[in-house]
């Protein structure tokens, strides 16, 4: 059972306080998008063996969504950050690269 740190309220708590929301940084494709774009938005997920960016909600806590970079193999947590961004913060990306030199990047 994971230990998560919510960047919105500063609480570090066990997974039972949180709800997972799947892959982060998806780009929404609405009306006017091609079938391929819509499919990518709705159904295509990276499901990596390694560095993964995912959405979590502090459901039993402050109620806020946040994002987390985690390794799906080792369960190492590289960091959590606010959901109001389209890509992981540069310093987090640098930290991941330092921990995982083979990581292909965001």
């Amino acid at each position: 059972m994971l230990l998560l740190s919510c960047p919105c309220c500063g609480v570090t708590a066990e997974e039972t306080e949180f709800a997972n929301g799947g892959e982060a940084h998806l780009k929404r494709f609405g009306p006017g998008s091609t079938d391929a774009e819509y499919e990518a938005y709705m159904f295509a997920r990276k499901n990596p063996r390694g560095v993964h960016f995912e959405r979590w909600r502090h459901a039993y806590g402050c109620g806020k969504w946040f994002l987390m970079a985690r390794d799906t193999m080792t369960l190492e947590v590289y960091g959590t950050y606010k959901a109001q961004t389209t890509e992981p913060p540069a310093e987090l990306q640098a930290h991941i690269k330092a921990r995982r030199p083979e990581w292909e990047g965001f």
Binding site: V11, T16, E17, A59, Y60, C62, G63
Partner: peptide, 10 residues
């Protein structure tokens, strides 16, 4: 103050 889970509820 801490918002959390009490048994099975918020």
């Amino acid at each position: 103050v801490r918002r959390t889970r009490a048994a099975q509820v918020a």
